[in-house]
């Protein structure tokens, strides 16, 4: 028969959603801080402001979709995950309190959902893949000779592909999505110190390639 238990799925709540059901709710579900630049839109969305919510969607849909795709390889599933994350924010908007900022919160929610999907697919179970973070990535984009820096991209690709998963994930969030260390720590559910370490090592790993390129 099929594997029913694999699909008995109860995805984690998005992190820091506050007032998580099952816990006695406190009078004020807001604990932890939302950075000042996000405060206004968070308050507006909490109050049910659809325009603010749509603006957030337009701003973050594409990067989140791309981020989800780094886990799943399938754009369709990536898109559905991002849609689910956004809908979940809307449904729980009254309790929504994205500690650490809107962007890292949504990235982390996407990451959690993507990992749940991976964890619960039949293939993952059959292979017994222990570390779901290993699933990262499609192939790096093919070098486009017409563009400046194509040679550099070609030289960097194998280096990046060989990075350990966590370091590569940190490099993605830093160099591709342009996040601060604090934001990366929030997304990866780790400390700023270990993000600092990952980035420092990633820089060490790519430095020889970059220096060779700069000499030429």
């Amino acid at each position: 028969m099929a594997l029913p238990y694999l699909f008995a799925v109860f995805p984690d709540d998005p992190p820091n959603s506050g007032g998580e059901f099952g816990h006695p709710r406190t009078a004020d579900t807001r604990s932890g801080t939302v950075p000042p630049h996000d405060l206004e839109r968070v308050e507006r969305i909490r109050a049910g402001d659809e325009a603010a919510y749509d603006a957030m969607f337009v701003e973050l849909y594409a990067p989140l979709r791309e981020f989800a795709a780094t886990y799943l390889r399938t754009v369709t599933v990536a898109e559905e995950i991002v849609q689910d994350v956004f809908l979940d924010v809307w449904i729980r908007r009254a309790d929504w309190w994205p500690v650490g900022g809107v962007r890292p919160y949504l990235f982390r929610a996407v990451r959690n959902r993507a990992m749940n999907v991976i964890r619960h697919t039949r293939t993952a179970a059959r292979l017994g893949t222990g570390d779901v973070e290993d699933w990262m990535g499609g192939p790096p984009p093919p070098p486009n000779d017409a563009r400046p820096g194509a040679a550099l991209v070609a030289a960097l690709a194998p280096v990046i592909a060989s990075l350990p998963p966590a370091r590569r994930r940190a490099a993605l969030l830093r160099w591709h999505f342009g996040m601060s260390y604090a934001e990366i720590a929030e997304v990866m559910n780790t400390s700023v110190a270990s993000v600092t370490k990952h980035i420092a090592r990633a820089r060490e790993d790519v430095r020889p390639v970059v220096e060779r390129y700069l000499k030429e």
Binding site: F57, V58, Y61, A78, V82, G138, L152, A171, W175, H176
Partner: peptide, 24 residues
């Protein structure tokens, strides 16, 4: 800029561009 762009390209994945309006 060239290096920043290369690092960004190489860490990301190649997927078709998003249809943000449709998704919205």
């Amino acid at each position: 800029p060239v290096i920043a762009q290369a690092l960004s390209d190489v860490t990301g994945v190649a997927i078709p561009p998003a249809d943000v309006d449709g998704a919205l």
